[in-house]
Simulated assay, not measured.
Amino acid sequence: MKMDKRTQEEMNHMEIIIGKIMRVGVATAAVVMLIGYILMVVKHSTGYPGRTFPTTLTAICQGIIQLKPYAIMMGGIFLLILTPALRVATSIYTFFKEHDKLYTIVTTAVLVILLISFFLGHTDH
């Protein structure tokens, strides 16, 4: 399938956006994790008793509000996990704009599986 010049320019633009999403997402996650680590060193505490840490999105958000270092670091990890999911969502848009039905469907299925795993992947030990 041959693309016209405008479509090719749009695709190049989307590739640049996807690259920026990945760089900004990873950098943001690293900064958040570093802030949590610095806070842990300054406070001499993780904010949680023993070897426990927040494992649910609710617990992470509550811990971030309370400035608990482990919660902030887990928030950074969560951002790191969300970065490729955002890239998948952006790819869906790109494939849709290209009128590539197969890749739009497959990529949408991948995003749905990622979202399901985010919400159902937590288990209590």
Rank of each mutant, 00 (worst) to 15 (best):
G36R: 00
F96G: 09
M74A: 09
F95R: 01
V41K: 14
A30I: 11
T104S: 02
F119R: 07
T90M: 15
I60S: 02
R23E: 10
G121S: 04
T52V: 09
F95H: 06
T52W: 07
G25R: 00
K43V: 11
L111E: 02
L114H: 02
H125W: 10
Y48I: 03
G76N: 00
I17D: 08
T123V: 12
T104W: 01
H44G: 10
A59Y: 04
R23W: 12
R51M: 09
V31N: 04
Q66S: 15
E10R: 02
T123D: 13
A89T: 10
G76L: 00
R6H: 14
K68E: 03
M40F: 07
T83P: 03
T90N: 12
T46I: 03
Y37W: 12
Y48C: 02
Y93S: 06
M33R: 03
Q62R: 15
D100Q: 08
L34T: 09
I16H: 15
I38W: 05
V41H: 11
I16F: 12
G19H: 04
Q8A: 12
M40N: 08
P69D: 08
G36Y: 00
I105L: 08
Y93M: 08
Q62L: 14
Y37S: 09
V42L: 07
Y48N: 03
A71I: 01
L111C: 01
T58W: 14
G19A: 04
P84Y: 05
R6N: 13
T90Q: 13
I64K: 02
I35V: 13
I16K: 13
T28Q: 05
P54I: 02
A30W: 00
P69T: 07
E98C: 02
V88E: 03
A27S: 14
G63V: 01
K5V: 07
K2P: 13
H122L: 07
L120T: 15
I65E: 14
V24I: 05
G47M: 06
G75E: 01
M73S: 02
L86C: 12
T7N: 05
F96K: 08
G75Q: 05
M3V: 06
M73K: 06
R23Q: 06
V88T: 06
G75C: 01
T58N: 15
T107K: 01
L111T: 01
R6A: 03
L79R: 03
L34C: 07
F119S: 07
I21A: 09
V42Y: 08
K20S: 12
G76A: 02
M22I: 14
L102C: 12
E15R: 14
I92E: 03
N12H: 14
M22Y: 13
T46M: 01
Q62S: 12
Y103D: 09
M40Y: 05
C61M: 15
I77C: 09
E98L: 14
A85N: 11
M33S: 03
F118Y: 09
M33I: 13
T55G: 15
Q62E: 12
L82W: 04
M11I: 03
K97E: 07
L80K: 01
V32P: 00
K20W: 15
M1H: 14
I77F: 09
I64Y: 06
V110G: 03
V24Q: 04
I105V: 08
H99T: 05
P84F: 01
Y70F: 13
I81R: 03
G75Y: 01
E15P: 08
F118N: 05
L34W: 06
H122R: 12
M1E: 10
I116S: 08
I77T: 11
G63H: 01
